[in-house]
Simulated scan of single mutants.
Amino acid sequence: MKARKLLLATTLALVMAVGTACGSDKADDKAVRSDGSIDLSQVTLHAGDQKGTGLQALLTAAGELNNTPYKITWSQYQSGPPMLEAINAGAVDIGGVGNAPPVFAAAAKSAIKIVNGYQGGTEGQAIVVPKDSPLRTPEDLRGKKIAVAKGSSAHHHLLAVLNKAGIKWDQVEPQYLQPPDALAALTTGRVDAWAIWDPYTAQAEQQSNARILVSGTGYVAGDAFFVAGTKALESKATSAALRDLIARIGRAHNWVNDHPEEWAKTYAELTGLPYDVILTVVKRGRYQNHPLDPAAIAAEQDVADAFAGAGLIPGKVNITDFTDTRFNDLFPAS
């Protein structure tokens, strides 16, 4: 209970998006001038955020939220899948997630498109266990209870680790829990291991005496994505604002790479997470912006095929059908 309260106390307050859809059609009515140009001051973007990406904090720290020509509202989520549900419903226009949530959303035929990709390192993607756990290798996970957020990047990492260790999915007992409940389950012994991502990984290590059994290095590509709703992309005004926001995100990533200590300090202040936790996260990997090129799409297709092969999604998903490359020019291949 103490661990759960600690995690909840350091988590940004959840502000779930409610009400009707974002009204992209109305945005066009107000923002598109008679000559076809866009008045971005008439646009409001509805952005999703989660503790693992800290998008609002990132943009704030880098100064990229200063003088945006449009308004932004923010909704906070514990993980990617519920955020994509909100995007599918039209309550949110865009949000950042790991590699698995778009696959599950696509399998559900959600109205979403992957619009931007980047890498942020693989060390913070981890399966953690209590420090004194007898589990020492991935092979030791056979038959164990493992906490994981269903449809999250940690779900894919866990699947990849099990596959490489020769363990079938039905040979473990997955416990589908959101991060606060998962940490409580780990610290009270109700689960044997927890598949998770940073900053929760660093928090578990530093505040709950957990250790990393196996990281994502060698198991996952480390790709993360920004996903937008198809209705938002169909709106000329909203898509223009999305283009500007995605460019700002790319610049913010570059700023973090050049100012890791400053970013860690600001992120800690904005979220309430300890500075040492955030600094650990920042030092684990640099941001690498990249276009949604054939290699990135193929890597995400591999993720989809892995879930389909394990019977965790209903049938094959074609990732290309859920990808929009119109913003690739913002991040040309290096």
Results as ranks from 00 to 15, higher is better:
L141C: 08
L84R: 03
T325L: 03
D321N: 15
D49I: 04
Q171C: 04
Q178Y: 14
V214G: 08
Y275N: 11
C22W: 03
Y287V: 06
L233H: 08
A160R: 15
A13Q: 13
Q78E: 11
F327K: 02
V317N: 03
R211P: 07
G315P: 03
S239F: 09
V115G: 00
T238N: 10
T325W: 01
G117R: 00
A61H: 03
F331N: 00
A185H: 11
D302N: 14
R326L: 00
H253S: 01
D35E: 02
A304H: 09
V214T: 15
I127A: 06
G222F: 10
N67S: 14
Q125A: 12
G166A: 11
V220R: 06
A105H: 02
T217C: 03
F322M: 02
P332C: 01
S24L: 00
T238A: 09
E205I: 14
I249H: 10
L159R: 12
D223F: 11
L330Y: 01
H155K: 05
L177R: 05
R142K: 15
P81S: 08
N328V: 01
V317W: 03
T238M: 05
G80M: 07
N328P: 01
D258G: 04
I297L: 11
A91F: 00
G52W: 00
G63Y: 05
E269G: 15
M83L: 15
N254Y: 00
N254F: 00
G189W: 05
Q203T: 11
E269Y: 02
K109D: 10
A228W: 09
H155E: 04
I112G: 07
T44E: 14
Q301I: 07
T320K: 11
E205T: 08
D29V: 13
T68Y: 05
G54K: 10
V303S: 07
A295E: 14
L162A: 12
V92Y: 02
L186F: 10
A298R: 13
S208G: 01
A247C: 00
L233F: 12
P81R: 08
T137P: 00
A21E: 13
G117E: 04
D49K: 04
S208H: 14
V227P: 11
R33H: 05
A182K: 07
S34I: 11
I297H: 06
A247E: 10
F225R: 06
H155L: 04
I313W: 12
G309S: 08
R251Y: 08
K265Y: 05
M1I: 02
L59T: 10
V303I: 14
E261Q: 14
L135Q: 07
T73M: 09
E123V: 11
K113A: 12
P69I: 06
Q206C: 03
G216A: 08
I127C: 04
V43E: 06
H290S: 14
L242R: 04
A149P: 07
G121V: 05
P101A: 03
D28G: 11
L245I: 02
Q171R: 08
V115E: 00
K316V: 09
A13D: 14
G222W: 06
V191P: 08
A27M: 13
V277A: 13
L158M: 15
A111Y: 01
D192R: 04
I72G: 08
V161D: 13
D329Q: 02
F307I: 01
G189S: 07
L55D: 13
